[in-house]
Design a protein around this nucleic acid. Sequence first.
DNA 1: GTAAATTACTTTACACCGTAAAGCTGGCGT
DNA 2: ACGCCAGCTTTACGGTGTAAAGTAATTTAC
Lengths: 225, 225
Amino acid sequence: MQKKSTTRKAHKTREPLTRDRIVDAALQLVDSEGLEGLSMRRLGTALRVEAMAIYHHFANKGEVLDGVLERLVDEVVLPPKGSMPALERLRHFARSYRQMALRHPNAFILVPSRRFSTDRNFARYENLLETFQELGFDGALSARYFRTLAYFCSGAGLADIASRAQQPDATPVVMEDFNNSQYPLVIAVVPHLRAGNLDAVFEFGLEIIMQAMTRDSEAALKQRS
Amino acid sequence: MQKKSTTRKAHKTREPLTRDRIVDAALQLVDSEGLEGLSMRRLGTALRVEAMAIYHHFANKGEVLDGVLERLVDEVVLPPKGSMPALERLRHFARSYRQMALRHPNAFILVPSRRFSTDRNFARYENLLETFQELGFDGALSARYFRTLAYFCSGAGLADIASRAQQPDATPVVMEDFNNSQYPLVIAVVPHLRAGNLDAVFEFGLEIIMQAMTRDSEAALKQRS
DNA sequence: GTAAATTACTTTACACCGTAAAGCTGGCGT
DNA sequence: ACGCCAGCTTTACGGTGTAAAGTAATTTAC
């Protein structure tokens, strides 16, 4: 009752602002310019509006960032219940999480650092936890595996982004006189951490967690029957 | 030759600025006020100096942050080579990493998000990789386990910090009408993720990685002999 | 011993930031 | 027809990082 239909109202004036349009523009700005490139004034300019206009839709900049965050987590998909075994669904979830991170390297930092407890997000958790329940895990074990998977995925997202980001100022680690340096083990490892190999590194770690879950799931389901 | 002894010079004037003193004050400021509480002017005030004085020791604010970052990673200890088996040393390293995160919740975000490739840091990597080598891992496997452990630890640091941070504005998730809500699985899991239980959650995930390393190490060392 | 150079810091200034507060303005309900 | 008010703009304030120039003391050069 307090909010009228903002839908069909722009008939001859310009398109009015909406939370959606603002968050769209904000995410686009962050994707292209980086997190520090997002200012209320720049965001206003992108929307052909004065900065203060945004404050009629969001209380402050933090709320805009929360909107962007919500967009990001919405991109992560857990396959629907019947589509594949529970373990495979979790594996897809983890991969989807990582793909989201790589699509939004500048914005991703928001995900593990900004806390958000919206109702919608609780629903997401509930969905995920159903999958753990299918594996036979109780609350304690679900909590542990949920966090283990989340730790791994968010750490991988951050680290991979940092690995891929080539900052122009930094020394490009010239291999010329680095090859016979004092750090032979580093040299042996570096090629395996190039951008093209990070997928395999991620899959390696993910597999370790998945195998542990498989074992515990079999034990839990057997005991239960 | 270009830098004279800046050590004994303050005989009647005040203590002169040094990079160390600046980074000290910066870390202290971040610890007590948060990352966004660190500004060049506030940092100057803390050092009883004008903000611009700092620029005679650091090119810009980013370099100061890099200094703080260096301080943080210096707090993480890998036990010396003879002190205990390689696997135990890595376990201690992981715990030490986590403890550092919990000691500096406001500054920790710098660690997984800021890239830094100082010589000193390469030396640290080399040290760590020696431990993996002891386990019989080649470059590829070292790379994979190194990253898996790092992913897990940095993700855990971030998530635990976010979990512990109670922001005063947020709804304190009133359990009154939440208990018989639509999210029973969330309710079953939440108590296991309270601050007091996060140590156990971390150890759980760490153990999964350690056990995988143990298996692979035994296989690698056996094959080698 | 004096002049020049260097070092360590301050002063001033600029363009940007988030946002509080007040002003405008056109379409709507009555 | 009138007033309201949602949606946007204007102005302003105190903060930010830092470029550029100024100042004072110490060190160096001859």
